[in-house]
């Protein structure tokens, strides 16, 4: 079965979804990501959906789940590049993905993850004092 590739950049995982996903593929991605976060002790997950023409409630739930699972595993998930039409449709559908962090593009998403990492490292440093 096809799998969506997951790239590793330092302690961040990057997923670019470029195909019209069927539900099994989405479920597989959720499982793969969970496994990789643990395997690489990743602190951030970046999901680029700029190529997606639609996000329905199933994919929305998948994004929500990934964010929730990664939070438990101490990683931040940022969804980047959602198209305006997709965002409007999701809101109309009733999905606001409140548990998911968002950014305009990969660059901004990466910056968001790094700034949060820096914050938590600073906190850790404070605790050690």
């Amino acid at each position: 079965m096809d799998r969506i590739p997951i790239l590793k950049f330092g302690n961040t995982l990057l997923v670019t979804i470029q195909v019209d996903m069927h539900d099994r593929l989405a479920t597989a991605l959720e499982e793969d990501l969970t496994a990789k976060i643990v395997a690489h002790t990743a602190r951030g997950v970046l999901i680029d959906i700029s190529a997606l023409e639609i996000v329905d409630s199933f994919m929305g739930r998948m994004l929500d789940n990934i964010a929730a699972v990664s939070r438990i595993l101490d990683a931040d998930t940022v969804v980047v590049g959602m198209r305006p039409a997709v965002a409007i449709t999701l809101v109309e559908l009733g999905l606001s993905l409140t548990g998911v962090k968002t950014a305009l593009n990969v660059e901004r998403g990466m910056a968001l993850i790094h700034s949060r990492l820096a914050e938590s490292e600073a906190d850790d440093a404070d605790d050690e004092d």
Partner: peptide, 9 residues
């Protein structure tokens, strides 16, 4: 484009 996205969704 928005209406397309809505009906496809």
């Amino acid at each position: 484009l928005v209406d397309q996205t809505k009906v496809i969704t």
